Simulated scan of single mutants.
Amino acid sequence: MEILTRVLPANLFRLTTSRLILTNVAHYTRLAEVGKLETPKTTGKYDTGQLILHKVFGYRGVILFPWLARVYDRDATNKKEYAETANPSETGDTLSNVGKEVKGRTHTFYQVLIDTRDAPYIRAQTEAVTFLGNQESSRSLYAIPGLDYVAHDDIIPYTSLERVPLQHELFDKFLMSQSRQRQVSSTKANPPFIAQETLRAWQKKNHPWLELSDVHRETTEGVRVTVIPFYMGSRESQNSAVYWWRYCIRLENLGAQAVQLRERHWRIFSLSGTLETVRGRGVVGQEPVLARHAPAFQYSSHVSLQAPSGHMWGTFRMEREDGYTFDCRIPPFSLESKPDEGSPMSPTPSA
């Protein structure tokens, strides 16, 4: 196996041969082996209970369950390698709401539980499931912390050597240790943990709020933007319905020079016929720098419409370290509502 010595973006781990080594983040003086790497899957998908390391953000996690998503990749429509590696179960759907038509291809993503020990060191918001309470008397926004949606290609599987392999308040509620011996000689190793009934019930009950359906990607001058929208529910307001969505955005610098996000410019079109323009400094109160040691940043925000559907698109104004500025395109994406199917199983409301 190739020897890997680079420090991952989160500055938490070093990969050496097949070992996963934890680095003391404060002083970089203590090394402790916490796991052994496994061979990433090039075909098929990972199972519930598989321990993983995020290739970009560097955190430890465990897979809860997979999702199939349509990926609208505006960079890949004319690439030969994309056609060769596309999932044969592709849907063939197209997106043509704004600009050129883009064909969606099916790819596997995973709902992942993040180790709370790593959360403070990653450049991503870790509340990946939000929805509105359905009770008429409630206007609560519910958030489930420590969850992420991870693409198959961003996963590095590993086996933990720690007594407590992952720390999260939901870990013991959702997963239990695999009782039978792992089959070392088998070509398909069993994951160390299996789903409990509470995980299956939670997934089934919360399906409309958990479902990952569309992913949108586009790259401008070496900065790739990935957008994943989620429907959150609706609220009655003065005899009319207000529909809410959450959208998760990941920015990744694929180039050599550091770039900083300075401004955002959104255009939001509603099926009711309105077109809103939003401008502002940074995102979520930050102007993140994307550099080699930390090339990615991920955040979430929310939008509401007085119509059951609409579209969003826009640009980020980016500034390179040499002073050059450019507008990085945010790929257009649809906002589609779903029937509210009863009150979900929810944690304590966050607001």
Rank of each mutant, 00 (worst) to 15 (best):
I3Q: 11
V7G: 07
P9M: 09
A10C: 05
T17I: 10
R19K: 14
G35H: 08
E38I: 01
P40D: 07
G44V: 04
D47F: 12
L51R: 05
L64T: 04
L68V: 05
L68I: 05
D73T: 02
S89L: 14
G104H: 03
V112F: 11
V112K: 06
D118M: 01
P120H: 03
F131K: 01
Q135F: 12
Y158G: 02
E162F: 03
R163S: 14
V164A: 10
M176N: 00
M176A: 07
S177H: 04
S177W: 02
Q181V: 08
V184W: 04
V184D: 04
I194D: 00
Q196C: 01
L199A: 00
W202C: 01
N206Q: 03
R217L: 15
E218T: 05
T219F: 11
V223T: 11
V225W: 06
Q238C: 05
V242S: 05
Y243R: 03
Y247E: 03
E252Y: 15
E252W: 06
L254C: 08
A256V: 13
Q260L: 00
R267D: 12
F269Y: 13
T274F: 07
V278H: 13
A291T: 02
A291G: 07
R292K: 15
Q298I: 09
P308N: 06
H311F: 07
T325A: 09
S337G: 06
T348G: 03
S350G: 00
